[in-house]
């Protein structure tokens, strides 16, 4: 018993070091937020139309695999991820856009300049997107048969091993 006690400091050190090793190597992001919307139906948002583009009706988005992307013309990472959204749309998966706190003419100019991958678009001039648990732009949602299957916060840059693209591939 007494001798076992001498090993106690080593055991404590081992436990602390083990926790540190786990924290460093598990890939867990302590700042990441849960996204309760994942697994639920995509909520119905009252979005406003953008010029004469087809209006996104999130409440009745329909079946199959689809992508909903929240973007803004003033958002620099949105420019960076735009080509990836274009290629997703070209591969046959419908991509829909929500323009977040953006002037309509700025959004239209953005789509003119970078191309419009969106099958339908809606404008959120208010706080509708908080329903999705949005923390900023860009954010992208994978929707399978009307339910959110994956929530990517931040740009999708198409790097190998991208978690969103892997989820998209798995869904189709």
């Amino acid at each position: 018993m007494r001798r076992l006690l001498f090993f106690l400091p080593f055991a404590v050190f081992g436990a602390v070091a083990g926790f540190g090793l786990w924290a460093l190597t598990s890939g867990r992001d302590p700042n990441a937020f849960d996204s309760p919307v994942v697994g639920r139906d995509l909520p119905a948002l009252a979005l406003e139309p953008l010029a004469d583009l087809p209006l996104l009706q999130t409440g009745e988005i329909g079946g199959g695999v689809q992508v909903v992307n929240v973007f803004a013309s003033w958002c620099v990472p949105c420019v960076a991820e735009h080509p990836v959204l274009v290629s997703i749309a070209e591969s046959g998966v419908p991509v829909h856009g929500i323009a977040y706190q953006d002037a309509p003419e700025d959004t239209l100019a953005f789509l003119d300049e970078h191309g419009n991958p969106y099958a339908s678009v809606g404008r959120d001039a208010g706080r509708q997107v908080l329903e999705l648990g949005l923390s900023g732009v860009p954010e992208t949602f994978l929707v399978v048969d009307g339910a959110v299957a994956y929530h990517a916060a931040g740009p999708i840059l198409g790097a190998p091993g991208d978690a969103f693209l892997a989820a998209l591939d798995a869904a189709r």
Binding site: F33, P36, V37, L130, G133
Partner: peptide, 9 residues
């Protein structure tokens, strides 16, 4: 708010 952002908020 928790229903939308999780208990982390």
């Amino acid at each position: 708010v928790v229903a939308r952002y999780g208990e982390g908020v």
